[in-house]
């Protein structure tokens, strides 16, 4: 039997709550065996999408298929094959965490006791405490353990690690890595960009109930701007007249440092221009995921021509303007582009 290549397929999904339109023609495709990042600002429609995929909400329009089944019609049969972790886990005040795990896993269709105990151990969870006494992070652990202790093909994770400490975040990433190695499909809604960058094969960015961008991180980066910083023998001129070059800033007292952002297709022309002035040092880094997100999180509709794309975050802009020399010296410490991107992501948490 051939395995289906598409685990989740959604097209034109629309859902309104009264006057509020939560989903506005959302399209999403998640391939089998892939870890798919689902990104977007609060209220963008991520949780609503996941709840439609669970058959907890019925969509107004559009088609959704999960593991080849209709999530509303075949909800129960489907739920035996998937596991869900909500972003805000509520537990029964008078049940212990262990009881809640057993209940959820049993109702999902089976519990691997050895796996359950192993996960409880790894997440350092006390299963004998009552639901009321757990902290936010521990409540999340209960749901994560319950979801991963059963043998589900598909994991729907809605900001699963909200409230987890950094150590547990690492454990979570390991566990998801193992799930991927085991061939499971994961839809991971998250705000933690380092987590997404580390775990996800593909990402979809959702905004105002629509997916505004979807693809591998590499593809998404290609679509946007690269930041270039150069140190030259003589002051660079005429960069801003080139197509696709934005936010040119000359730094340093002698004007020998320049930084700018350039659209992917125009990188070659911009670098050629630099060589006319004698390149002494050059760093470039692809847009970080944070920069990608910021492009889509703002209120203005995304566009590649109106300069929004050149805004790599207000903080960075401000530091460029006021602390020029200091910023420049930081750059010369020679961090390479991609590493630096990770640093930024780490800091963004």
């Amino acid at each position: 039997m051939m395995k289906a290549t598409t685990a989740i397929s959604v097209s034109g999904l629309t859902k309104s709550f009264g006057q509020t339109r939560a989903l506005d023609g959302l399209d999403l495709r998640v391939g089998t065996g892939e870890v798919h990042g689902f990104l977007g600002p609060n209220g963008a429609g991520k949780s609503t999408t996941i709840r439609v995929l669970l058959g907890l909400l019925r969509s107004d329009r559009g088609a959704a298929s999960v593991l080849g089944a209709d999530p509303w019609q075949d909800a129960v049969a489907l739920h035996r094959r998937l596991a869900y972790v909500p972003g805000d886990v509520e537990l029964w005040p008078n049940l212990t965490g262990g009881e809640a795990i057993d209940l959820l896993a049993k109702l999902r269709g089976g519990l691997d006791r050895r796996r359950r105990d192993e996960l409880i151990e790894r997440f350092a969870l006390d299963p004998a405490k009552k639901g009321r006494t757990y902290s936010k992070g521990n409540r999340q652990k209960v749901a994560i353990v319950a979801a991963l202790a059963s043998d589900a093909e598909l994991l729907l994770l809605d900001e699963p690690t909200a409230g987890l400490d950094p150590l547990m975040e690492v454990v979570f990433q390991d566990v998801i890595g193992e799930a991927r190695a085991a061939g499971k499909t994961v839809l991971l809604s998250s705000h933690i960009l380092a987590q997404v960058e580390k775990l996800c094969d593909r990402v979809s960015i959702v905004r105002l109930g629509q997916v505004v961008q979807s693809g591998t991180l590499r593809e998404l980066r290609h679509l946007t701007r690269t930041t270039v910083e150069a140190e030259t023998a003589s002051p660079v001129t005429g960069l801003d007249t080139l197509d696709g070059v934005h936010d040119v800033r000359v730094e340093g007292e002698d004007g020998l440092r320049v930084r700018f952002a350039v659209d992917g297709p125009h990188l070659d022309a911009a670098v050629r221009r630099l060589t006319d002035f004698g390149v002494r040092g050059l760093t470039s880094h692809p847009p970080t995921l944070e920069e990608l997100m910021l492009r889509h999180y703002g209120d203005a509709p995304p566009s590649t021509t109106d300069g929004v794309g050149g805004t790599p975050g207000p903080a960075r802009k401000a530091s460029g303007g006021t602390d020029g020399p200091q910023d420049a010296s930081h750059d010369t410490t020679g961090t390479t582009g991609t590493d630096r991107g990770d640093d930024t992501l780490g800091a963004s948490r």
Partner: peptide
């Protein structure tokens, strides 16, 4: 919010 995780099971 305690019905949701249960109804997301079988």
């Amino acid at each position: 919010g305690r019905a949701e995780p249960l109804l997301a099971t079988g």
